[in-house]
Design a protein around this nucleic acid. Structure first.
Lengths: 128, 128
DNA sequence: TGCTAATTGCTAATCATTCTCGTTTAGCAG
DNA sequence: CTGCTAAACGAGAATGATTAGCAATTAGCA
């Protein structure tokens, strides 16, 4: 047989936090939320579980240049992200012009792509 | 008056290495090449100078999810990157379908975007 | 209810990057 | 050409994110 991931309380709480999140969370951001529901969870456990959920395909990574990795529930429609250069928050951008064609050499094998748009979010843009 | 960046030997060698590079280099990759021309350069100095050149607008950063930052000469034509998931090398992709339109809320201010295509490079794809 | 391997909490270790500090040196004044 | 001073250097310690190691817990099946 394969593996048998256990349904621990901290794993459940973590999944619950991501399910209730409206934007990608870093491990530490998630940790803060998890501890509100269940104090005394180790940060290391957070990393382990995030990795676990990631491998099970329940979470997806979102990388922002120069920042800690963030995660969100997998299975959303194909979308990309916006990063505010002022407050560093991450936002989801629905849709992606699928016309995106890149001049990748034929010999290369394309698995996917990632697009990050950056600038200022509404709040930060208003402050100027 | 402003600042006065000194024209040191290590700064010159570093610029020279980037000028001769055909792909984005991480600080450590650049370090290896610099030391071939000039042994006994400290890694910390590499970071300092990369940052300096970056601030002077002579270098541009390229971030690859989960990897150390890479740098390349600034001023190339608008282009994006390909990351090989097997050998982790970075390749330049010329051009960018400028039709790329994202559904960013009007209130957001867009500064730019970054696209990363990932998969297998020619060499790694052939090994399968 | 009991057993055992998966999981946890805690701590030490790693990696990339930045910082500190005493020493060297670019580049201008004399 | 010689001196001076702040910028830059080298070496190593410090930081932040993430992973690994290990003894103590515990989920889940017999």
């Amino acid at each position: 047989m394969e593996k048998s991931p256990r349904n621990t309380k901290q794993r459940r709480t973590l999944a619950q936090v991501f399910a209730g999140a409206d934007q990608p969370l870093s491990v530490e951001e998630a940790w803060v939320r998890v501890r509100r529901l269940q104090p005394r969870v180790a940060l290391g456990t957070m990393y382990r579980n995030v990795r676990g959920l990631l491998e099970q395909g329940e979470l997806a990574v979102v990388h922002f240049p120069g920042q800690a990795a963030r995660y969100e529930l997998e299975g959303k429609a194909h979308h990309h992200h916006f990063e505010c250069r002022s407050c560093n928050q991450a936002f989801d951008l629905s849709g992606c012009t699928d016309k995106v064609r890149f001049k990748v050499p034929r010999s290369f094998k394309v698995h996917g792509h990632e697009i990050i748009v950056y600038g200022l979010c509404a709040k930060c843009a208003a402050k100027r």
